[in-house]
């Protein structure tokens, strides 16, 4: 049954995807109205599916698909927060495709990598994973905001008709990006800390040399630089976008590093 709910959510998220594509063609006036209600309804189905899965399997995450689904949900949660505060769906332009792909993989993917390790039953692992995924989601949001900022800045500078486009005001986009950084950083830090403590107790000091850990720390360092430059020098636009992409690339590398990691391979 949870898969059915997830597929319903996927169907509703596909409206978000249509919005993203339409926004590229700048013909999104009518679809914009349906987007927010549709994807938020999708979130409800998505949540039901997550809860049922967790209930059935006794753990938040028992396969790679659960991870994908959870991350997609975190992204949607972020979208809902932004929408509630700023009444704009534009970050969805960049967020919805990611949400759709993740949900698609989770809902229709075959033969998932199943995590069989008994460690995953530990509640602290669930906390660790949830926090890290929320951190990823916040990072993706600030990257999306950076891209939108660049687009809007270009538009205003080119003095074309785009100048008075439907994108939110530059300052609003900036706030969305900065606030998701401010929110994401402590979450990510806590997530990494729980991971470190757990790994220390399981594997001893050797875990520090694990590539996934190293990449995660690198990502955290870039995160700090991103926050610091924004806070002290007010970096916006191009420079912030570059840093955010760097953080995002390391985050993706850290996400995929499971394959080369010894301690994050939960598939024994």
């Amino acid at each position: 049954m949870p898969v059915v709910w997830l597929r319903v959510a996927l169907g509703l998220y596909s409206i978000g995807l249509v919005y993203s594509v339409a926004a590229l063609g700048r013909r999104s006036r009518w679809i914009t109205r349906f987007t927010a209600p549709a994807v938020q309804l999708g979130m409800i189905f998505h949540f039901v599916s997550l809860a049922e899965f967790a209930h059935q399997q006794g753990s938040w995450v028992s396969s790679i698909h659960d991870l994908e689904s959870l991350l997609a949900f975190m992204l949607m949660f972020g979208f809902a927060l932004v929408f509630a505060r700023y009444r704009t769906v534009t970050p969805g332009m960049l967020i919805f495709p990611a949400v759709f792909l993740l949900t698609f993989a989770a809902a229709l993917g075959k033969n998932p990598i199943v995590f069989t390790s008994p460690m995953l039953r530990k509640p602290w692992i669930a906390v660790h994973i949830t926090l890290i995924l929320a951190g990823y989601a916040a990072l993706l949001f600030s990257l999306a905001a950076c891209v939108l900022y660049l687009l809007q800045e270009r538009g205003l500078k080119s003095k074309s008709r785009l100048a008075i486009s439907r994108l939110p005001a530059l300052d609003v986009i900036d706030q969305i990006g900065y606030r998701s950084l401010l929110l994401g950083f402590p979450i990510m830090t806590l997530g990494l800390l729980t991971g470190v403590v757990l790994a220390q107790s399981e594997f001893g000091a050797a875990f520090m040399r694990d590539p996934k850990i190293l990449l995660s720390l690198l990502m955290w360092a870039v995160y700090i630089v991103l926050l610091y430059t924004r806070w002290s020098a007010g970096w916006r636009g191009r420079r912030a976008a570059l840093l955010a992409s760097a953080a995002f690339v390391t985050a993706i590398a850290a996400w995929t590093a499971n394959n080369v990691s010894s301690i994050h391979r939960f598939t024994r």
Binding site: L156, A163, I164, A169, L170, D171, V172
Partner: peptide, 10 residues
């Protein structure tokens, strides 16, 4: 005014 709002929000 419209341009200023597109930059500063309000």
């Amino acid at each position: 005014v419209e341009l200023a709002k597109k930059i500063f929000g309000s």
